[in-house]
Design a protein around this nucleic acid. Structure first.
Lengths: 220, 220
DNA sequence: GATAGTTTCATACAAGTGTTTGAATTGCAA
DNA sequence: TTGCAATTCAAACACTTGTATGAAACTATC
């Protein structure tokens, strides 16, 4: 308790190094060197390397999820229990995109860390992600209230596609920039959010006839 | 040249182990044990562990990309140089989805390996993926010909979103199944393809008069 | 100011990693 | 068969990894 200095120095150094170089080639020795603390300090304060990584990721995830739920709750309250689907989707993908995109030079360490976490998938992080389902269920619930005529299965697919577009755009932002020769401006975060929300909304509200059972016109 | 036996035994064993247990905790010793060859054989035949992984991934990627281009070319030829956007998108995401989804018990080793490669991102694989841009450009070109009124930037975003939905669905198929309590049937691959194509098509044609007739592809 | 509880530190540990070596074996051509 | 290159093999190498240890240095309480 006395002095958290060492503990937080480790957290900060680890986040910085992981953000810059990825989980693959950052060792405990790199971290303690960057933090100017003793090698044994990591195990003393965190128990193990994995628990250090987990704590970093949990901290950031909680922050993002709290922001998501705050936006969702505000929207549903404003609409008397029902929010427009666009606003729900914006609450779902907005915080993540805002946290991870934007001009690179002003991107926070936390943001770069979360991008890494989404690109490289390391066991302790994967374990945590798997417990995120309850959180997503809250969004599925809100979407169901917003679109009571939609079948559950379509809600889930819409949710899946919304997350897909957000996360993939973060993961592959560099490639998209290169592919489009800079035309796709990933620094304009609000434009990205708008695009994702717009497509996801279409996916969820398109004429109900289509996409239902077309599985047999398959080409193979 | 003489006897490729050892070489291909290593390839097969490595693919199997990586598919089952991921890149993280499969060592060269595991591989040579599974292949019943000597430890030094890997370095003798492949140079290094990374080159072995790269060869596995390149082989599978080439197969998928060839299939993609085959479908694309056939579609454009059938349409006299222009293919309907749905068919282009189907050529883009179909082979990957068909390769990686479907009933788990009949999923090939190759398929499971490619899923691993898309979940865990390991350096040699990432290097190869970065060279995939030229391949994607061919699809961007076909999409531009199909939708000449669309701005380039929208083409790229549509391409990005199509890949996003396909890859994310593969990566997170387990979570989607759990979230939807089994309602989303990821074994019905052609339904998944249809959903992705449908949403991507909407993303690319929204706001314009959509007069494309998707019935043409039934002729395949 | 002695004492008990934290925290830091240098150092060692044990295990596992990919890779290299150099001798043995094999297979094939002359 | 002989000779030579290609392949296999056991063993060791060189190194890195996360973790454990036990003494030293602190810090706060009485």
């Amino acid at each position: 308790m006395a002095s958290d200095h060492t503990r937080s120095a480790i957290l900060a150094a680890a986040e910085r190094l992981y953000a810059d170089r990825g989980f693959g080639d950052v060792t405990l020795r790199d971290i303690v060197a960057e933090a100017n603390v003793n090698l044994a300090a990591v195990n003393y304060h965190f128990g193990s390397k994995d628990e250090l990584i987990a704590e970093l990721f949990v901290t950031r995830s909680i922050a993002t999820n709290r922001e998501r739920l705050r936006e969702l709750k505000a929207a549903e309250e404003a609409g008397g229990g029902r929010a427009p689907i666009e606003v729900i989707l914006r609450a779902l993908v907005g915080p993540t995109l805002r946290g991870c995109l934007g001009p690179e030079n002003q991107r926070s360490t936390a943001a770069r860390f979360m991008i890494r976490a989404s690109i490289e998938s390391v066991p302790p992080i994967r374990r945590i992600k798997n417990r995120e389902i309850d959180h997503l269920r809250k969004f599925a619930g809100a979407m169901r209230r917003s679109l009571p005529d939609r079948r559950d299965i379509d809600i889930y697919w819409g949710l899946n596609f919304a997350l897909a577009m957000a996360h993939h755009t973060i993961r592959e932002s560099e490639r998209l920039t290169k592919l489009s020769e800079g035309q796709c401006d990933l620094d304009d975060v609000e434009d990205v959010v708008a695009r994702v929300v717009s497509v996801a909304t279409m996916a969820l509200t398109a004429g109900k006839v289509e996409a239902k059972t077309p599985s047999r016109l398959a080409a193979r």
